[in-house]
Every structure is written in structure tokens, then in C-alpha cells.
Nucleic acid binder design. Structure first.
Length: 566
DNA sequence: AACCCCCGCGCCCTCTGCTGGTGTTGC
DNA sequence: AGCAACACCAGCAGAGGGCGCGGGGGTT
């Protein structure tokens, strides 16, 4: 048996490969809870920590490679993935240069992108002669997803072998339970046992890959049958079966046993809990609602759901008329409405909330984090609802309509104010505390206070006298006291007036100044209206003078007043 | 398996406050 | 007549309250 260059721990690490967008790949959370990886347009690199260092995956010119990040390790840990045409798989594989290279290196991993309608193919083996016997065809599309699934299976296989010394039956159980992964009995297992591998392996030995005995670990996957692809397990089934196998084997030293899920970080001291947890890794939902045909994983979930149809609310609040489908809803309601218990407290301010999600949302007001970005403008919000509300700007949607005048609004609050101010009696008004002004809106009262009642360090002088003020409102009130004053007195006679401009005109009587000169006859006038009247009467041929005719004698007058004097 | 409890996400609502356009009014 | 000030108004966003509902884990 050739030495294994790629240790199984490295395979398991590959499973944990963190693929990021920056690296040109993205993870997609599917409904079944499986994180799938898709390749972006450009080739990129991604890294995963492995026992001997980081592995890098490269997508270069159609070839996917997993190689150590450091060159010095490349000789030991190269793991190459190559895409070949499945339609001529045998020939292509045999003729592919990398195959022979990998054969020398040890374990081969081949990812084949099938032609249209054919699956990806992952092969693990140690040479071309075993290739077709040690492959599994998966009826799924995502290449890296396939890779992850297979790597997980390798991991399970190794662990199965690791505990073989404790319970030899478990090996059989695993093989039987998976239905997909089978040891090449008579080959690897026998060989391993013969070489004193797994059967005699201790925890210390299993802890370090690459140590004595590690070279004998050869993960093999059999049962390749391309014609029976549709019978192969789906990825979700693999997860379940994989976890089913897990329940039998994970034990820790000490009085209390803990059971670990291989698909996630879940641990439990009870196997029953692990069993139930394992089912969460499947999308299987056997319990269907007969009213809406929606399916659920458990009877309890289905029952709660049906209660939403029937209106059944068994949990009633003692302090009000509210009732709820679940006890949790009742507890939450009581905290909001009655006990006001707020367990989630902000460490930066006095805010406390009933729900953790509310505290999380609140924290964003401290951090300024705005994860909900509008794709049409630069706006970003701290929660999804605000973004949804914002999007009405772009869509023009105005879902709120005034039932009286049918005016439409983007926000319910705006419509509410509209109805209150426009169509309601006894509209609440806001009295300014400093003056008699009454303003409809509080916000406008605030503007009023700012404009008229805010102290200003700068002096504001009365335009009519020497009085000085520091607020606009008293200034305006003061200036109004000058309103009916005939403050302007003529130096030459007894004439008085309220406005300076009137005095300016009057003074011309005494000075003889006539600044408005007729352009046709050079005659001067003290006021512009006098000049205009002169020009129209004597120089404008189109001018038709108004004639006020006496209704008794028919005589015409140029002035309405003259009509009554005559 | 069922019950209970808790959690997280999503949705909708209200309250609040700021902003800018508009009509009215006084000077 | 023109202008400035101001109340009015709609638009819009921030913050938080409340509930619906599915999911998951501990316990019985």
C-alpha cells in the first residue's frame, strides 16, 4: 500500500474551508442548512488551515487545485483536483498527465465536471486501476459542494476506523447506515488491521496525522455506478446518515459522556438529543398542514401552525384579553405590556429591551452600522423595515390613502397627521409658552421658538429708535409700537408723516427739487407718478383719459371727485 | 414523542424630529 | 409691487414597541 500523502485530518480541514467573496467564491446558505460554495467569475484563491499548514485552492484554467500555502510543504501535501470530460472519462483519465503524477504522490482526488446532465464525480484512490472502483457520483451541481461532501465522508470513515478497537460492530454499523460509504473489506480494512493500524490505535496516535501508522490510512470510497446515479444519496441524506453514524462513536473520557454532531458544533450529554438534533440537518418535513399544504419537521411545529389557521390561542393573558399560540409569545407579551421586565440591557446607555433582537438593533445606533443598503442610491439603514420604507421613494408607492380626500402618502404617520389637521375637529394646537402664537405642529412650534424666542448674543436694533434686543419676538413687538406714530416731522412746516419716503417727497416742496424730468418737454416733477400722468396726457397719442359723466346733465369730468363738487 | 421554553427573524406600527416647498401676511 | 418672515404642510428618516411564527434544545 502506498503511503498516504494527504492525511485525513487535512481532508477534514478542507471541509471547513472558509470561502469568502474576496477570494472570488461565495457561500450560499441553502434551505437545507447546507452551506454551498459557488465560484465567481474570476479565478481566485482560497485558503484553509490544515494540520500541516494552510491549503490553498486555486481555480486556474479549468483546473482546481488544493495545495499547501507554503512551498516547502508542497511536496508532501499536494491535493489536486482536475476537471475532465466525463463523456470520455476512462480515456481522458488514463491519458491525463496529472493522474500519473498523482499516482506517485498517493491519494488522488478527481473532480469531474460532467457534460450536460451528468453529475460531478469525486474519486479517491491511489491509482488509476482503482479509480473507477473508488468513486462516488453525486447528482448535484455545485462542484465544491460535492467536494465538501466527499471530504466529510472521508472524515467519517477514518473516525469509524479509529474507534474500531472499542467497538468493532460500529464499523459495520457505519457502513450499513450510510449505504454509500463502504470499506473495501478485504483490502483497506484488513490491511489496516494487519498492519496494526486502527485496531490498535490509541487516542494519542490518532491525534497526530503523519505519525506512525498514519501512512496506512487510505480512505476509499466504493460503489461507483454511474448508471445508478439517481439512486445515490442526496447531500441532505448524507448529512443525516453521517450524523446517525456519529451518535454511536463519539465519546470522551470521564464520567459524563458528550455526543458531538459532525455537521455542526452541537454537543449534548444525551444521545436522544443528538438523535433529534441530527434530524435538523435534513429538510425532510413529513408533517403537512392540510389547510395550506405547508410541511413541518415536527408535530409540534405543525400543531402551532394549524393554530394560526384556526385561531386557537391556548395561552391567555391574565391581565388583558390577549391570547397567544405559544407560551413564549405570552411571556413576551407580559413583559411588554405588564411586567415591563427588560432583560437585555445596553452597556453604553440606559436602553433596555424585552428582546435580544431589539438590543441588537439598538446597538447599531451606537455603532452606526447600517447593513441594509439601498441598491438604487446611497441610503443605508439599520434595519430592514426602514430600507423597505425608503424604497417607496424609488417605486413611487404610496400605500396610505386619506379616506376623506383620497390624498396618498408614503407613510402612515404622515397620513395620520394629514387627517388630523385637515379633516378633524378639535385639532390639537401647540401654544407657544412665550407668546400668544398657536401652531398646529409641534415641530413647527420648535422652529417658531428657535426663530423668535432664542437668545442671540448679537444685538438687534429697532429700525425706528435706539432700542436694542437679543430676541426677535420682543424686537418685532417693540417695532409695532412705532406703527401709527407720525415720527417724521418737517423742519420747514408742520407736516408730519409715518414713513420716511413720504417725508423725502414732501421736503422737495421746500427745496424746489424736481428730479423727474419729462423726456419730451423737459418739464420737471417732484414725484414720478406726476411725471407719468403728464406724459400720458400730453405726449402719449394712445392715451384715452377717463371721463366721469354726470348722470343728470351729461357733463364730463376728468376726476370722480369733481363730479360731486359741481 | 410531547411539552415547555427560549431564540431569532421578519413585519408592522407609532412616535418623533428634521427638512424644504408653499401660501399668507405684514411691512 | 416687492420682499421677508412665518405658519402650514408633506416627505422622509431614526428609534423603538409589539407581535407572528418557525426553529431548536432541555426535560419529562
Amino acid at each position: 500500500m502506498a503511503a498516504t500523502e494527504i492525511t485525513l485530518e487535512q481532508f477534514t480541514k478542507i471541509k471547513e474551508l472558509e470561502l469568502t467573496r474576496e477570494n472570488g467564491l461565495e457561500r450560499e446558505e441553502e434551505e437545507d442548512g447546507v452551506c454551498r460554495v459557488k465560484e465567481h467569475g474570476t479565478p481566485g484563491e482560497l485558503e484553509a488551515e490544515c494540520a500541516y499548514g494552510a491549503l490553498q485552492a486555486r481555480v486556474m484554467e479549468g483546473e482546481l487545485e488544493l495545495v499547501p500555502a507554503t512551498s516547502e510543504e508542497s511536496g508532501r501535501h499536494m491535493l489536486s483536483l482536475q476537471t475532465v470530460d466525463l463523456t470520455s472519462a476512462d480515456v481522458e483519465l488514463q491519458d491525463t498527465g496529472w493522474l500519473s503524477t498523482q499516482q506517485q504522490e498517493g491519494v488522488q482526488v478527481v473532480v469531474q465536471q460532467a457534460g450536460s446532465g451528468l453529475p460531478w464525480l469525486l474519486c479517491l484512490g491511489e491509482g488509476p486501476q482503482q479509480l473507477m472502483q473508488q468513486c462516488v457520483a453525486l447528482p448535484i451541481q455545485e462542484e465544491l459542494y460535492s467536494l465538501q461532501v466527499e471530504v466529510v465522508q472521508c472524515h467519517l470513515l477514518e473516525e469509524e476506523l479509529m474507534v474500531a478497537s472499542e467497538d468493532s460492530e460500529l464499523v459495520v454499523n457505519l457502513a450499513e447506515s450510510t449505504g454509500l460509504i463502504e470499506l473495501e473489506k478485504g483490502q483497506e480494512e484488513d490491511q489496516l488491521l494487519a498492519e496494526g493500524g486502527f485496531a490498535q490505535r490509541t487516542e494519542e496516535q490518532t491525534a497526530r496525522p503523519g505519525e506512525e501508522g498514519r501512512d496506512n490510512i487510505v480512505p476509499t470510497i466504493s460503489n461507483l455506478n454511474l448508471e445508478e446515479q439517481e439512486d445515490k444519496l442526496t447531500s441532505e441524506q448524507e448529512n443525516v446518515e453521517k450524523a446517525n453514524s456519529t451518535e454511536n462513536r463519539r465519546k470522551t473520557k470521564g464520567a459524563k459522556q458528550t455526543y458531538h454532531c459532525d455537521s455542526c458544533v452541537f454537543t449534548s450529554s444525551r444521545m436522544s438529543s443528538l438523535n433529534r438534533h441530527v434530524k435538523t440537518h435534513t429538510t425532510k418535513k413529513p408533517h403537512m398542514c392540510h389547510l395550506c399544504l405547508r410541511s413541518f419537521r415536527t408535530v409540534t411545529l405543525l400543531r402551532n401552525h394549524i393554530n394560526t389557521h384556526t385561531g386557537t390561542r391556548p395561552y391567555k393573558c391574565d391581565d388583558c384579553d390577549m391570547a397567544f399560540v405559544t407560551s413564549g409569545e405570552l411571556v413576551r407579551h407580559r413583559r411588554y405590556k405588564h411586567t415591563h421586565e427588560k432583560p437585555f440591557k445596553c452597556s453604553l446607555c440606559k436602553y433596555a429591551s424585552v428582546e435580544a433582537s431589539k438590543l441588537k438593533r439598538h446597538i447599531r445606533s451606537h455603532t452606526g452600522e447600517c447593513p441594509f443598503q439601498c441598491h438604487l442610491c446611497s441610503y443605508a439603514s439599520k434595519d430592514s423595515y426602514k430600507l423597505k420604507r425608503h424604497m417607496r421613494i424609488h417605486s413611487g408607492e404610496k400605500p396610505y390613502e386619506c379616506h376623506i380626500c383620497h390624498a396618498r402618502f408614503t407613510q402612515s404617520g404622515t397620513m395620520k397627521i394629514h387627517v388630523l389637521q385637515k379633516h378633524s375637529e378639535n385639532v390639537p394646537k401647540h401654544q407657544c409658552p412665550h407668546c400668544a402664537t398657536i401652531i398646529a405642529r409641534k415641530s413647527d412650534l420648535r422652529v417658531h421658538l428657535h426663530n423668535l424666542h432664542t437668545y442671540s448674543a448679537a444685538e438687534m436694533k429697532c429700525r425706528y429708535c435706539s432700542a436694542v434686543f437679543h430676541e426677535r419676538y420682543p424686537l418685532i413687538q417693540h417695532q409695532r409700537t412705532h406703527k401709527n406714530e407720525k415720527r417724521f416731522k418737517c423742519e420747514h412746516c408742520n407736516y408730519t408723516c409715518k414713513e420716511e419716503r413720504h417725508m423725502t417727497v414732501h421736503v422737495r416742496i421746500h427745496t424746489g427739487e424736481k428730479p423727474f424730468v419729462c423726456p419730451s418737454c423737459d418739464k420737471g416733477f417732484r414725484q414720478k407718478p406726476l411725471l407719468n400722468a403728464h406724459f400720458k396726457k400730453h405726449h402719449d397719442s394712445n392715451f384715452i383719459p377717463t371721463v366721469y359723466e354726470c348722470p343728470k346733465c351729461g357733463k364730463g369730468f376728468s376726476r370722480w371727485v369733481s363730479l360731486f363738487k359741481s
